[in-house]
Simulated assay, not measured.
Amino acid sequence: MIDINKKICNYIAKEWISTSKSNRSFALDHNIDEKTVRKILKKEGYRMPVKTLQKLCEAREIKISDFFILLGE
């Protein structure tokens, strides 16, 4: 079974960050620090705070519950 933290980060990295111009532009567009983007992209599996996930979802105009539907959890 894959770690949920890794699954969340992998989804965000592949589906959201990879489509952005740069880590910096993604961070600015989603109201988070660029350092957080780098943590998400690391292979160790960043333990993302719910507040950060909430900011990402708000920027994408989706509910957190809908994010987990997209994630398949």
Score class of each variant (00 low, 15 high):
D33R: 13
L41R: 14
R24T: 15
R47E: 11
E44Y: 10
I17W: 01
I17P: 00
L28P: 01
K21H: 09
A13V: 09
N31P: 01
M48N: 02
G45M: 02
L41K: 15
S22F: 02
G45R: 05
K14S: 13
E15K: 14
K39G: 00
T36N: 06
A27P: 07
S22L: 10
K21E: 13
E15S: 12
K21F: 09
A27N: 06
Y11N: 06
S18W: 01
S20A: 15
T36Q: 07
L53G: 03
M48W: 01
P49H: 11
E15Y: 10
K21I: 08
I12Q: 01
K21D: 11
K51F: 04
K43M: 08
D33V: 05
L56T: 00
K21Q: 12
V37M: 07
V50G: 05
K43F: 03
T19C: 06
I12G: 02
R24L: 15
S18M: 07
L53P: 05
D29P: 04
F26W: 07
E44G: 05
I40M: 04
H30T: 02
K35F: 00
H30V: 03
K51H: 04
I40Y: 02
W16L: 15
R24I: 14
S25V: 14
T36Y: 02
K14Y: 10
K14T: 15
L56H: 08
R24D: 12
K14R: 11
S25E: 15
D29Y: 01
K55M: 06
K51V: 01
K14H: 09
N23T: 12
M48Q: 05
N23G: 15
I32M: 13
Q54F: 11
Y46P: 09
H30N: 15
K21A: 13
E34Y: 03
T52I: 13
K39Q: 09
L56D: 03
S20N: 05
M48D: 10
R47D: 12
K21M: 12
A13Y: 06
D29R: 03
K55G: 00
D29C: 05
I12H: 04
V37Y: 05
Y11W: 15
H30C: 04
D33F: 10
E34C: 11
K14G: 08
